[in-house]
Each structure stands twice: as structure tokens, then as C-alpha cells.
Design a binder for these strands. Structure first.
Length: 426
RNA sequence: GUGGGUGUAGCUCAGUUGGUUAGAGCGCCAGUUUGUGGUACUGGAAGUCGGGGGUUCGAAUCCCCUCACUCACCCCA
């Protein structure tokens, strides 16, 4: 194909039917799933003050390299959100809702990075957050909730990884210890891991570079430095997940991309994805986040899950598409003496019947072929009887039965009459 | 930011050592059919061969540049 003059920007994609129908269905199911657990829908602006994001991820690529930030007309520095949690936390501080505050979102995020399978510059996440409770049951509720959501979609091949980073003091203390250790073995690390030692030493733990593995394997382990209370908390979360019947794998090298996490962190991977990005959802606890943004000390926990990656995983597991575009009825017209279908179509819609017709074909055979695309419940044949223009034949696609309906002689009542017949049958 | 792969019709792709007017399947349009159910047959429309430059009598094919897409690294959902 010759490239058109304009196409969507790199890593940003159009969403068209029928894929868009499946997308809406996915979001709707998420809404119902977390709605049942008491989570309300939240929307925050796509643009925020740059510092909202910068405060919470100083050492991370997400905010240092990949942010779409720019100077606004009034000179202020703003950014397209690279993730949602920071904006939701800002909103929490601004409105001070009753706690525990449980919200879910479906939002687009922007990261200026090179694209690959399951990785886009504009990507979409479903997520849920809870602010104002440090109860470990919330951690459990979110993790189990997300797992069950995936299962309800038909995903089967899932792996749950969890880890604990301890509280902030633990984390800071361990981070220093790790930095000291790694600095003394800096020569044995892969060059591209060396710079991370100062900036974000936890990140070295999950390196994929084999050259660094021996050093990392002998590094001090975070789990050995957790306090009694940290360990208790971690045990509660693990046993809660276990009681829900979900296989859980402790991964001591699991750290996360954003550095506001404390205590629980987790990821759910799709084992069906052969691509480099198999994590479809992840999150954890961020007890210091609200405070870092200038709010009162408030615990929080949440997750984000990539919609595009969920859909990739569904395809990889060969799950049938979640939704199909379907109409109640499709109108086929016969011959030159056929009444004009326009009024009937518009009238049926006013009476709550989803209906369409073929506009580019006049051969009934072609129209019938067209109707198969949209999987209507009923096919309505208009103008079939030359001597009785007010009679239509209705074909129920479910059981292949057909019958005639006399619409009556008064044009203004015909749509209502037919709508009644279809609704009774439906 | 770094590296690999791929660009030919709406889609998926053929296209020989460079050689007439660039092909197929699917899809689309129409007909066989004043007619109606996933079939069959017939015909039709549709391509600046991603773009630019070069070599050549001659380029989809060879060379250079460029753009786009894609996969991977980094990183992340």
C-alpha cells in the first residue's frame, strides 16, 4: 500500500469496529466486576502539572525519558499522563473524599518510547485504587479481584508473582545496602547495569543481562531485611491469596517501574504471550505517595492492567471475541414496487428496535448476503408481495421460521405495529 | 536512544539470472435470478510496486538516501 499522506502517529492506533465493540465490552465487564466490590468510576484529566508525575518517579525512565511534557501557553510545565495513579492521588488530595476511597478507571497513557509488540506510545489501562486503608484485605481484594476478572474473560494461562518491599524505612535501608554491595562489584556488572547502581539499585535486581547475573544472585536479599511487621503483613497477603485458591509465586526480584511502591507488589503474566511483554497487569501498595504529593499521610494500593495486552492474551489463548456487533433486524427490499423502507427503519428505531438495511445493493440476494454480516435476529422482507405492499415477511434467524405481518394501511402506524410484533417475539 | 526484519490491489501474498500491458486468493461491484439463506458459475472495478535519486537500451527486481511498519534491547501495562 502506498503510504497515505497522513497516518496516525507512531505507537498510536485507531480503534474500529468490530474491535471497538470488544473493547467496550471489556471495559463494561471490568466496570461490573469492580463495581460489585464497591469501586466507583473516576476520570482525571489527561494533562497534569509535570511535577505531579515527576515527584513520584524521580529515578524512573517513565518520568525521566519517556514523558510527553511541554511548556503551556502561560509558561507552566505540563505533561500527558504516563500512568494514572499519580493523578488519582492528586485528585484525592484535592477533594478529600471519605476513606477508604475505592475507585476504578479506564484511561489512556502516553509514553514516548520505541514501540514493539504489546508496547505503544498511547496505551490504555484498566485500573483500580484504594486510598485510606492499610488493611491487608485491600491488597488481597485487588489481587484476587484482578485475577478473577481475567479468569472471567476466559484467560487460563496466568501466573501471579508477588513480593514485599517492606515499609519506607526498610526499603531505604535495603537500597543503601544494595548500592554499597553493587558498587563494590561494579566491574562484574554489565555496563548498561552500572549506571543504575546509583540511580535505582533495585532495578538491577531484575536485570535480564546474563553478565550481571552472578553478582545479582549473591546480592543481599530484601526478604532478609524485612522487619517483623513487614513479614507479618506479607504473610497475611500471601495466605489471603492462597485461601482464594490462587497459585501465588513469591518472586524476590520483583520490583516495579515506579518508585513509590512499599510493601506488596505484584504482577500477573500471561503465559500465552510469546512476546517480550507478558505482564498484563501489575501494581502494589504505595503508602508514601499521597504524602509525597503534599497530602496527609495516607496509605494506598492499586493496580493497572493494559487493555491492549489483555486483548493480545485473549487472542493468544484463542478465546472467542467478547462481543459481536448485532442488530435486532435487517430489512431486505424487493423490486420496483417496494415501499420506501426509510420511514420504517427510522420508525422502528424510535420504538427501540436496532435495525439497518443495505444501501448499496438492490438485488435482494445481495441484500440478504449483506444481512449475514451483522447477524440480525430478524430479517424483514419488504415488498415481497406485489399485490399487498403493506405485508412484510419476517424471518426469525434463530429457528428459521417465517411468517407474514400485515402492517396495516396507515403509514404512521406501521413501524409501531411491526415493533410490537418483534418485541413480543423477542 | 540502539540493532534486526519487512514495504507489490481494501486484506493476505506470488513475481525466476533485470526483459512485452505487474499476477493470485479473499473482499468489493454486477450478472446468471421479478428476485430471498453461507454454494456454484460468468464478468467487472481496483496498483504513483512506500518515496526520491542513481546504474541500464530496459528496474517491482541492482546501488544510495529517505519514510513507514514491525520485532528485539533498554524500559514497562
Amino acid at each position: 500500500m502506498a503510504q497515505p499522506k497522513f497516518q496516525s502517529l507512531k505507537g498510536m492506533h485507531d480503534l474500529l469496529p468490530p474491535d471497538s465493540e470488544e473493547w467496550l465490552e471489556l471495559v463494561d465487564r471490568f466496570r461490573q466486576h469492580f463495581g460489585r466490590a464497591g469501586y466507583g468510576y473516576i476520570q482525571t484529566p489527561i494533562l497534569e502539572d509535570l511535577d505531579v508525575f515527576a515527584r513520584v518517579g524521580e529515578g524512573t525512565d517513565v518520568v525521566t525519558k519517556e514523558m510527553y511534557d511541554f511548556v503551556d501557553k502561560d509558561g507552566s510545565t505540563i505533561a500527558l499522563r504516563p500512568e494514572s495513579t499519580a493523578g488519582v492521588a492528586r485528585s484525592f488530595i484535592q477533594h478529600r473524599p471519605l476513606v477508604p476511597w475505592k475507585v476504578w478507571y479506564s484511561s489512556q497513557h502516553f509514553r514516548h518510547e520505541n514501540t514493539q509488540a504489546g508496547r505503544y506510545r498511547q496505551h490504555h489501562q484498566l485500573g483500580a485504587e484504594c486510598f485510606g486503608s492499610d488493611h491487608s484485605d485491600i491488597d488481597i481484594e485487588l489481587i484476587v479481584g484482578l485475577w478473577d476478572f481475567y479468569r472471567s474473560l476466559g484467560l487460563d494461562r496466568l501466573t501471579l508473582h508477588v513480593n514485599s518491599l517492606g515499609d519506607r524505612e526498610t526499603r531505604v535501608r535495603y537500597q543503601e545496602l544494595l548500592r554499597t554491595y553493587l558498587s563494590s562489584h561494579i566491574e562484574d556488572l554489565h555496563p548498561s547495569d552500572r549506571e543504575k547502581v546509583q540511580r535505582n539499585p533495585l532495578r538491577v535486581l531484575d536485570t535480564k543481562l546474563s553478565e550481571s547475573q552472578p553478582v545479582v544472585a549473591r546480592a543481599p536479599r530484601l526478604v532478609d531485611h524485612l522487619s517483623e511487621t513487614d513479614l507479618d503483613r506479607f504473610e497475611q497477603v500471601k495466605s489471603g491469596i492462597d485461601r482464594a485458591g490462587i497459585p501465588v509465586e513469591v518472586n524476590p526480584r520483583l520490583v516495579r517501574g515506579l518508585d513509590y511502591y512499599t510493601h506488596t507488589v505484584f504482577e500477573i503474566m500471561s503465559d500465552a504471550l510469546e512476546t517480550a511483554q507478558s505482564t498484563i497487569g501489575g501494581g502494589g501498595r504505595y503508602d508514601g505517595l499521597v504524602e509525597a504529593l503534599g497530602g496527609p499521610p495516607t496509605p494506598g494500593v492499586g493496580f493497572g492492567s493494559g487493555i491492549e495486552r489483555i486483548l493480545l492474551a485473549l487472542r493468544a489463548e484463542k478465546v472467542e471475541p467478547l462481543a459481536r456487533f448485532a442488530l435486532d433486524a435487517f430489512i431486505v427490499t424487493f423490486g420496483g414496487g417496494c415501499p420506501d423502507p426509510s420511514a420504517l427503519v427510522l420508525g422502528l428505531r424510535r420504538h427501540g428496535i436496532g435495525v439497518d438495511r443495505a444501501l448499496n445493493q438492490h438485488n435482494p440476494r445481495k441484500q440478504t448476503e449483506r444481512s449475514r454480516r451483522v447477524h440480525p435476529r430478524f430479517v424483514i422482507r419488504l415488498g415481497k408481495y406485489d399485490d399487498r405492499p403493506d405485508v412484510v415477511e419476517v424471518a426469525d434467524q434463530r429457528d428459521d421460521s417465517t411468517w407474514d405481518v400485515d402492517l396495516g394501511p396507515i403509514a404512521s402506524e406501521q413501524a409501531a405495529n411491526l415493533a410490537d410484533v418483534l418485541k413480543r417475539r423477542r
